[in-house]
Design a protein around this nucleic acid. Structure first.
Length: 224
DNA sequence: ACATTAAATTCGA
DNA sequence: TCGAATTTAATGT
């Protein structure tokens, strides 16, 4: 079983729980590792786990028969996802792929429902999370059509800094340009061009193997 | 696709 | 255990 202080470190919601709830949560979570490019879930799967990213990076999206990927969201450490499929007891409607070696924490369905029915703190967190995700998906509606590559990339990055979905406070992100490209649905070379444009405009700073966000608000509304 | 540069790893003392 | 040398990974054009 995972340690209580460890759980508090990897899951923001666990800090809202009382002692008893925390014990139940700990007992219902297992960890699992995935290699880069490995599928974590496939559309249609029926594994009912509520899942958190401990370390690594994954992409939530769908891949069409042609093999081209549309991504809904990037998942960095601290992100928890899959509550929709667990709550509605439905097959998953999207794929999740690890973009690099990734460690996940997975909570089984029974534990999830116990917390759902018994813990006020847990529900408070869930409502906030669902609301944020709704906002993110609404933002996606204009995403594909209206926005050019630079704007799409800007928003992909900005969405990784949603403080509710990704409680990490630091404005620095360890992510390669290739990974940013994979998240935004553009080539690495194009991603490089877009990133440099954003850097020139003072929205972010490029470093080797990572970026630092300078102006999150402008990044979030880029191209409006 | 290729050239450059940063980082990680290996190796010898 | 330190640092130089080599290999691997990321970036820029």
């Amino acid at each position: 079983m995972i340690a209580a202080d460890y759980l508090k470190r990897i899951a923001a919601w666990s800090r809202e729980l009382n002692e008893r709830e925390l014990e139940i949560a700990r007992a219902g979570i297992v960890e699992k590792s995935y290699r880069a490019d490995e599928f974590i879930f496939m559309r249609g799967d029926r594994f009912d786990y509520w899942t958190g990213v401990v370390t690594g990076l994954a992409r939530m999206g769908i891949v069409s028969r042609g093999g081209k990927a549309t991504s809904f969201a990037g998942l960095t450490s601290g992100a928890w996802f899959g509550e929709g499929s667990v709550l509605k007891k439905e097959p998953r409607r999207y794929d999740v792929v690890a973009l690099r070696d990734t460690r996940l924490a997975m909570m089984d369905r029974n534990t999830f429902f116990w917390l759902f029915e018994n813990s006020v703190g847990f529900n408070r967190f869930l409502v906030g999370q669902l609301n944020e995700r709704l906002g993110q998906f609404i933002g996606l509606l204009e995403y594909g059509r209206t926005l050019d590559a630079t704007a799409r990339l800007a928003r992909s990055i900005a969405s990784l800094f949603n403080p509710i979905l990704y409680p990490d406070l630091t404005m620095h992100l360890e992510i390669t340009q290739e990974e940013i490209g994979a998240l935004s649905g553009i080539s690495r070379q194009n991603a490089n061009q877009c990133l440099k444009r954003l850097e020139k405009q003072g929205l972010l700073r490029l470093e080797y193997g990572g970026v630092t966000i300078v102006d999150l608000e402008r990044l979030r509304h880029y191209g409006e």
